[in-house]
Simulated scan of single mutants.
Amino acid sequence: MKKDIILSGVGGQGILSIATVIGRAVLSEGLQLKQAEVHGMSQRGGDVQSHLRISSSEIRSDLIPRGGADLIVSLEPMESLRYLEWLSADGWVVTNTVPVVNIPNYPDQTALEAELASLPHVVRLDADALAREASSPRSANMALLGAAAPLLDIEPAKLEESIRTIFARKGEAVVEANLAAFRAGYETAKKQAAR
């Protein structure tokens, strides 16, 4: 098993929480993991990118080569497009459709949507709305993780177990809210895949 994943978004969206959930689930399955946060984490609103490399055998580098990513998971649509040159020819993009307009020359939303729609393998969802519908407006990152789950080759139950462990210190209500958002994203992705 080998899976190379780029997580992207802007600071404060919860990219590192997604990485932590995936990492804990991967390690619980006895797989190898290398992770690298590449830039932007120290600034709220700055771009954030994290490389996750998962394998059943030794991983030599923590950075994914251009054209080598199996999956881009992005909490911000422009950020998903920023890393397309890292995506393999048969790779997937799973992205939130809600922009974070934090620069004066942010691309036109219609052009952004058109470019995303033109990708051969893409799951687009309003993760923010799914989180709100699950009564957990701060859990858009977990809704997005749920949407990516069918493409991760990790049992959803392992990811849910990881969510429970990571958020346990915040109380059962927070755990359940994050699980509800994760499940909402998972169901949305399954419906898109069935079309």
Rank of each mutant, 00 (worst) to 15 (best):
M1N: 09
G11Q: 02
G12H: 03
L16S: 07
I18N: 05
V21R: 06
I22G: 03
V26N: 04
V26C: 06
S28W: 06
Q32C: 09
K34A: 10
G45D: 01
V48Q: 03
H51M: 08
L52G: 03
S55C: 12
S57C: 11
I59H: 04
R60F: 15
G68M: 01
V73P: 03
S80C: 06
L81W: 00
G91K: 05
W92H: 05
W92C: 07
W92L: 09
W92P: 02
V94Q: 02
T95Q: 08
V100T: 12
I103C: 11
N105W: 10
Q109A: 13
Q109E: 15
E113S: 12
A114E: 15
V122G: 01
L125F: 02
L125T: 02
L130M: 08
E133T: 10
S135G: 11
S135M: 13
R138I: 12
R138A: 12
A140I: 10
N141A: 01
M142H: 10
A147S: 06
L151M: 06
L152G: 06
I154N: 08
K158E: 11
S162C: 09
I166E: 13
F167W: 12
A168E: 15
R169M: 13
A177S: 11
L179A: 08
F182L: 00
R183H: 05
R183S: 06
T188N: 12
K190H: 11
K190V: 10
A193K: 13
